[in-house]
Amino acid sequence: MMTLAIFGGTGLTGKLVLEKALKKGFKVKALVRNPDKLKINDSNLQIIQGDVLNLEDVQKTIESSDVVLSLFGHVKGSPKWLQSRGTENILEGMRQSKVEKIISLSGGGLPFPEKDEPKFPDKMIRFIMKVAVPKVLDDAVKHAEILKNSNLKWMIVRGPRLTNEQPKGKYRVGWVGVNASTKISRTDLADFIVKQIESDEFIFQMPFVSE
């Protein structure tokens, strides 16, 4: 069974992805800043204490893994370029360990002009993000550029407003403004992400997953 390197496994969505991956029988190496936030006892889980901005910690996590899941994001007090710098470290670790595939989690504000057809509400949301949380949006855009230029098999999973509602067990996979709604439960989004581990359907793309 494959080994996954997970970054951001203590987040609200990341933890659900990690739990689902373990249930499916994957081995998981999770880099976390605070191991106390991950109270999961599983023989297939290896917890590594460290920081995604520390290259040595990242390399240790990716070593001997098959696929990388990059699920970390900004929290209060995060450095401005957290996602892009962390992504650079992850890609360096992947090259050193010859790991080819990475799935990264981002938000619907990140554009994918190749497939998106944003409607007025979508444009308004992006405008609000530019005003309210410019560093998060700028960082997401830069991290996407880094992945596109990596020569590795990348996929960026985007979602709208994430809720803690009960999962519906089904969801739409489209693009911003195309076959999409304005929300999704974190559990359903986690389900989609785990399914991509063994699928290359959306490699080099940014699917938008919503209910």
Rank of each mutant, 00 (worst) to 15 (best):
A180N: 09
L31N: 11
V209M: 05
V209E: 05
Y171S: 04
N89V: 03
P121C: 02
Q96H: 11
K170R: 15
F26A: 04
S97G: 03
I48L: 13
S70W: 07
A180G: 14
E100M: 13
K39Q: 14
R172P: 00
I203Q: 11
V52S: 10
V99D: 12
W175V: 00
K39L: 10
P121I: 06
K98F: 11
R186Y: 01
K183M: 01
K183E: 10
Q83F: 07
T182H: 13
F192P: 01
L152V: 07
K27M: 07
N41I: 07
I6F: 08
F112Q: 10
P160G: 13
D51M: 06
K60G: 00
S199W: 13
S181Y: 11
L71V: 00
G11R: 04
V58A: 08
L162W: 00
N164Q: 15
R172F: 12
M129Q: 14
T182S: 15
F192S: 00
N149L: 12
Q96D: 12
D42E: 10
V157W: 00
A132W: 15
G109K: 09
V133F: 12
S104F: 06
K60D: 08
F127N: 15
F7S: 02
L152C: 05
N179M: 10
I128H: 07
L105R: 04
D116A: 07
L137Q: 04
G86Q: 02
S104R: 09
H143G: 01
I40Y: 02
K153N: 13
G77N: 07
V176K: 11
D36G: 09
I197N: 07
I103F: 06
V176N: 05
N41M: 10
K148S: 06
Q49E: 15
M206R: 05
L71N: 00
K20D: 15
K37R: 14
M155G: 01
S106Y: 02
S104D: 03
L16E: 11
G50D: 05
K23E: 15
P35S: 12
R126L: 06
I6S: 08
E165K: 12
E198Y: 09
M2N: 15
